[in-house]
Design a protein around this nucleic acid. Structure first.
Lengths: 140, 140
DNA sequence: ATTCTCTTTAGAAGAATTATAAACTATTGA
DNA sequence: TCAATAGTTTATAATTCTTCTAAAGAGAAT
């Protein structure tokens, strides 16, 4: 068994579980997304990376795939910048540092975080999620 | 003195302090923004309101003005939705409920809120702001 | 292999926002 | 009061990100 087979099979399993056909494009994007630890990507950045890695995938497919993966729970959307949409391969409970200058994100583990003093959700509504974004800038 | 003079003069003072000429357009937008308590607007929504209030202001001017007011500290930008940019007339320390279904915002006073367990800002960076967004959906 | 259904894709379309350059207006100083 | 000037407004074009469309392509099942 080739050492590269295992990652492929993991991605395959993820796609299968999500009910998504394991197409060439989804496998390629899945590998880029899930074989490198926690990542934050935009459609454009992932598309660039895919192309420069030799995978020919259209930008439309990248958008489609990111949304399908998100719906399947494989990715999470992160809203920190009104100019572009970020997707996070870390779907566990956590928050973010956002570097306003370069637009980069880094995770803040959700375990240690506690928020006190939050009022109840408005009448007739349920909380879907609590997002904390710590906006930082270089000190000098 | 007309009862409507006071608000005008308040807006005038705000503009003067910000070093912005009190033009017809800025006064009209300033009144809409600051004479009705805490508000959350988008460029489009404020433009619509201005037009239907009889103030002829172009959309470009609404964008310009929102950004100038923000730079002057009269408004705050709120990032909750990658599709559009919201501006908040409440510039004090506070957070938001975001109704994902209708795109509306409501304030959460910052006084009672406390976040524990946040790690230090990454080396070489300073915290510019901590934003908490509680995303809610109607219960049924 | 054939068929069926799901996917991909190029390109058009849409939506929000920003840029441009000409017309306009508040302010200043004579 | 009246230019001159410097800052504003605006229509419109341009940009950018994202979604849509419809036709071609590719897995899956028979």
């Amino acid at each position: 068994m080739d050492t590269n087979d295992r990652p492929y099979s993991q991605i395959l399993a993820r796609l299968r579980d999500a009910g998504l056909r394991p197409t060439r494009q989804r496998l390629a994007l899945g590998r880029l997304l899930f074989e490198a630890g926690d990542r934050h990507v935009t459609a454009e950045s992932l598309h660039e990376q895919a192309v420069s890695a030799g995978a020919s995938v259209s930008l439309a497919t990248v958008y489609n795939t990111l949304h399908q993966f998100t719906k399947a729970g494989l990715l999470r959307e992160v809203v920190v910048d009104s100019a572009r949409t970020y997707f996070d391969t870390n779907t566990s409970d956590h928050h973010h540092f956002f570097h306003e200058e370069d637009g980069s994100l880094s995770d803040i583990s959700g375990h240690a975080i506690e928020v006190t003093g939050l009022p109840e959700a408005p009448a007739g509504t349920d909380v879907a999620r609590v997002d904390i974004v710590v906006r930082v800038r270089s000190s000098r």
